[in-house]
Design a protein around this nucleic acid. Sequence first.
DNA 1: ATCGTTGTTCCAGTGAACGGGACACACGGT
DNA 2: ACCGTGTGTCCCGTTCACTGGAACAACGAT
Lengths: 255, 255
Amino acid sequence: MSLLARATAILDCFDVKRSALGVSDIARCTGLPKSTVSRLVGELVDLRYLERDGAQVRLGLRLFELGELAAGPKELRKLAFASMADLRDATGQTVQLGVLDGVEVVYVGILRGRSSVKLPSRVGGRMPAYATGSGKALLAFSEPDVVERVIANGLDAVGPRTIIDPEAFRRELAFIRAAGVSYEVEESRPGIASAASCIVDAAGVPVAAMSISGRVGEFDARRVGLAVRTAVVGLMRQLPHRPLDRIREQTGLSR
Amino acid sequence: MSLLARATAILDCFDVKRSALGVSDIARCTGLPKSTVSRLVGELVDLRYLERDGAQVRLGLRLFELGELAAGPKELRKLAFASMADLRDATGQTVQLGVLDGVEVVYVGILRGRSSVKLPSRVGGRMPAYATGSGKALLAFSEPDVVERVIANGLDAVGPRTIIDPEAFRRELAFIRAAGVSYEVEESRPGIASAASCIVDAAGVPVAAMSISGRVGEFDARRVGLAVRTAVVGLMRQLPHRPLDRIREQTGLSR
DNA sequence: ATCGTTGTTCCAGTGAACGGGACACACGGT
DNA sequence: ACCGTGTGTCCCGTTCACTGGAACAACGAT
């Protein structure tokens, strides 16, 4: 395990629930020797990636800065914001924007609806991809090996109706690919339903997914699904105009 | 230069203006050998701190996540948000919240005013402390060695009226400490004026500064200065109630 | 006073990072 | 076609910086 991996393991210990940790806490959490952790924490503090708060230590200012600079999610959020707001206003439900990272979906933007059922999601938070509307929408348009990796990673039931059978899951993705919309009822969490649609770029690679979630009762799947889909196609129409970097990426990808 | 310092030097190359860089760009910018950069970039990509975008590389998803988790700024922003909104609505000018980091102030929150004169500041952005309203307010309540470090670092003119004389600067801070408000007219940038006030915690250590900026013409310094000050004292009144972590910090600081 | 904590420091041993150089590739100019 | 210059990656012997057990000092609780 390289030094960088150790350092990042330290940063990974922090969570919305555990926002301040001691050296020993970190040593336990990472499995690294205490002396090593002490030294690395010291270096990270000097670099302002961590900051001391008495005997505890918490995530530092530089991470905040770099997070604000992380161009990808920011740009995406800006582009999608208008559509998301329309959707939120039209339905009153909460709208989310997520990207795929390995076997999980990371939410990069959230607009909470009026009927603010408290969703567990949070900007920067993660959920298993196979159990969420956004995740399934993204996987439906991803390469087969990405999907297989998710399946191989295990389809554990995280909600009352999570799809745990690999074959059923593949069929579900095929259906989503055809429909352009994914639905999910109590697959991620009891009492919650959602509909999502995948945003793909000009080359057909999935970029993000927009989803809309609400309480199972007050949620008209058909209607809402259509709304998400229309919002997404509207968004995609203005997507390929993004000039330089997209072109550069294209040429880069073509070897 | 340790490995961690090298890795962070790579991350520091990125900027709002240079959001995507190649390996050679980074090598030039950091002064590190290209082969070293290539290897480190590879590791950082594996760790998702960077992501490849064709031949270019940009800041990755994990930095975005960690930035969202950085508790300090987030908490502060939440606390100050109401007062900032009041101030913005009352004056129509843009309100900023900044913290001190070394010799610079980092903006952790911005509410743009109606008369949206385009300020150069940005959430997560930096400005030299000695040349801004927020920075001077923070320095006025900081330990002498902090102030001296800033002065030793050099008071270069960044605006038409930047204070560049060390002695004048010390007098300015003494005045601000007495008044509780700092003013700044064209010290940071031509055509811009601002007033700021420092938020100190129960122990008297400066935490952040709230500032309000506008075009020199449409800016009534007296009136606005008083408004900022009242907003800040109102904010501070509800500050010491913050329970556990503050107490822990206290005990930690008292050795 | 005696534990069980905490975090920090020391230092010799070693394994991982280093980086010069060779390499493959993609351009653009002549 | 032939360079010249730009990329980014990879190899591999050298070496030096990271490692981590152990000893340490400070607390707090029992």
